[in-house]
Design a protein around this nucleic acid. Structure first.
Lengths: 216, 216
DNA sequence: CGCTGTTTTGATTTAATTCAAGCATAGTGG
DNA sequence: CCACTATGCTTGAATTAAATCAAAACAGCG
């Protein structure tokens, strides 16, 4: 609906710790594997990725993990219904974010366009999550990996070679599989001639059409 | 955030066909199994359940189906990013809805409170869907059914006996299982003494605590 | 070069699916 | 009132896709 983002802010050039956030827009940097927020923590800010990659996940008491999304530059995350985080967010690689106070964005003095954009972004998240439900509920391992590679290729601008930021274990927890199964499906796609692995993280898509057909 | 819904409308007392909807709020009635909208159809309205139960689902080309949500009275559904429906909605039992034109609710002359409420409801949907990702990606069949029964009990007001509107097949497509597995898990819960089946649709929760422990 | 963490590959097990009957329950009409 | 049909549910036996368990290979990095 809005072509130009109303929530594009130029980060101010002073440092701030999370937990001590001023009200407008705060730049933050996280090293590899750093926690951005954890399930159960007090919420109140939403985050926009400037650079890097973020994983958002939920845990079961026994340690089983489900990653609900990977966030790339331009994405926003951290939206919460109440004042507690319901999921954990971590930087997969060194990551720069900007934090916005939710109250400021949505309070009574907030711009109607900003609220509409937040609605739009939340709906994008809902759409993505619903598509992912179909993947987790009804697709087999090969279909899941094919869909994942196409999703990443799409998000990274339709390139034919993609650099995956995340390890096999994260891909597995995103796709509801084990890392061994993910590895086997990579091997299977390779044998079928639809991908080439330059390294375990650098994937060439040799036949996007075949992948699309497989992703069901 | 809003305790009292800003989108509570008293249905007007005239009949209207879907596809020919006036701009404010239109009551509609659907018989059992009637389609409310289908994947690929033109969107533009959101719906609020007055009575009955609605299932929202997505299909794969070969017929595999994933139900993303069951909607009960008071729920709203039909939110779409663009102007096409991305899922199918059907009445599970005879159902009454009110339709609202999306443009009217969110356009430039819309009330800020209404937009905030839509944001809030979309975030509720997102939260629900993320929890469901964890269920589909990481829980076993017994945990899924236990979680489902608790969810339904919660939505129906914490009663100890619940009347399920949907057949086993719909429960299966919601939980990412087959109907046979769902039936077997009902039997298992029965053997464990956590539920009693008065009929296949009328379930008594005998030990909600044990169910909660099992739902993981 | 030798850790450390990650990925691949292999053998085996298992949870859930698939295939196949049988059983209820509720309507319908003779 | 009772067969008759349709629909939905349960149960059993066999199969299978993915998980688990177990090593080995690989890739960085200090």
């Amino acid at each position: 609906m809005l072509t130009q983002s109303a929530i594009t802010e130029y980060p101010r050039l002073y440092k701030a710790e999370p937990g001590n956030l001023p009200s407008i827009s705060v730049p933050m940097a996280f090293p590899r594997n750093a926690e951005i927020f954890a399930e159960g923590e007090r919420a109140g800010y939403v985050y926009k990725v400037v650079s890097g990659v973020v994983r958002v996940s939920q845990l079961l008491p026994d340690g089983r993990r489900q990653i609900s999304a990977f966030h790339l530059p331009g994405d926003m995350f951290g939206f919460e219904l109440d004042d507690l985080h319901h999921a954990t967010a971590e930087a997969i690689v060194p990551t720069k974010l900007v934090a916005f106070k939710w109250q400021t964005l949505t309070g009574t003095s907030a711009s109607a366009n900003v609220v509409r954009e937040l609605l739009n972004r939340t709906m994008m998240g809902l759409r993505h999550t619903q598509d992912h439900l179909l993947l987790l509920g009804r697709k087999n391992a090969l279909e899941r990996l094919a869909a994942f590679l196409l999703e990443m290729a799409g998000r990274l601008g339709g390139k034919t070679v993609l650099e995956l930021a995340m390890p096999r274990h994260d891909i597995a927890d995103y796709l509801g599989l084990t890392l061994e199964t993910v590895s086997r499906m990579f091997a299977e796609l390779k044998e079928m001639g639809t991908i080439r692995l330059e390294s375990s993280r650098r994937v060439h898509l040799l036949d996007a059409g075949k992948l699309k057909a497989m992703a069901a």
